[in-house]
Nucleic acid binder design. Structure first.
Lengths: 120, 120
DNA sequence: AAATAAGTAGGAAAAATTACTAATTATTGT
DNA sequence: ACAATAATTAGTAATTTTTCCTACTTATTT
């Protein structure tokens, strides 16, 4: 993967935020630095950054795919009211304080299923 | 919410599956019972069933929104190879066997954030 | 500086989801 | 059983989200 101003700007923009924006929100912000950037470029670079492990996808109900440049293990909190998504450290989940408003939680594990493992 | 054959069929169809289908997959199956059902009806009923708490959304990377009629607490496993989504009991997560293929996990908490709570 | 291969803008296309409207249907009271 | 009602639907259009394509541009290598 070679350098490009567009990818660098997408990455730095995302890194500077903690709101887990979706592609079109990132696009709006990148346009301020590179006015003629295209939405397709933003999507492509987000995908490549994900593949490189520099960015993670944040899949949340009733929302376009969101992105996160923080790659250490952490959970997300989604507000029923405004839909905002914020970070929660895994330690906080096991402790009781600071999570008063939580109504339910979802856990998704990613890996390779038995069938796919046996194919190789 | 009053009875309709369409909603009942959507619900029973989903309940009979453990593959966490998306709206268009459910649509295909419901069509076998109600040939002229419309995709919009499937979407609307899935939304209403979610609101009623009978169905849950399953948001997963690189996939349309999926649905699940199993409403007890459980986690999901997503295969990197084929993309299939299967159920995992929360007990199994804390134990070590049966989760060999897991590469990473995501936790999403849902609730009301401080700002939204203070507004009321 | 020339070659080359990856990356881009711009727009078209596809996929996913929501919204609209006239017709249909379940429910409620008679 | 029947008429009034309000919810629901089919069908379609529109919107949103995401991917794909192509000729042009740019970073990198030699």
């Amino acid at each position: 993967m070679r350098y490009s101003k567009q990818r660098e700007t997408v990455y730095q923009t995302l890194k500077s935020m903690c709101s887990h924006p979706d592609a079109s929100q990132i696009y709006q912000l990148v346009r301020e630095k590179i006015p003629n950037v295209s939405l397709g470029t933003v999507y492509r670079n987000l995908g490549e950054l994900c593949q490189a492990g520099l960015v993670h996808r944040v899949s949340v109900e009733n929302s376009a795919e969101r992105f996160d440049a923080r790659t250490d293990q952490h959970a997300h909190f989604v507000c029923h009211g405004c839909g905002c998504v914020s970070d929660v450290s895994l330690e906080d989940i096991t402790v009781q304080h600071g999570l008063d408003g939580v109504s339910h939680c979802k856990v998704v594990l990613y890996g390779t299923c038995d069938q796919c493992r046996n194919k190789k």
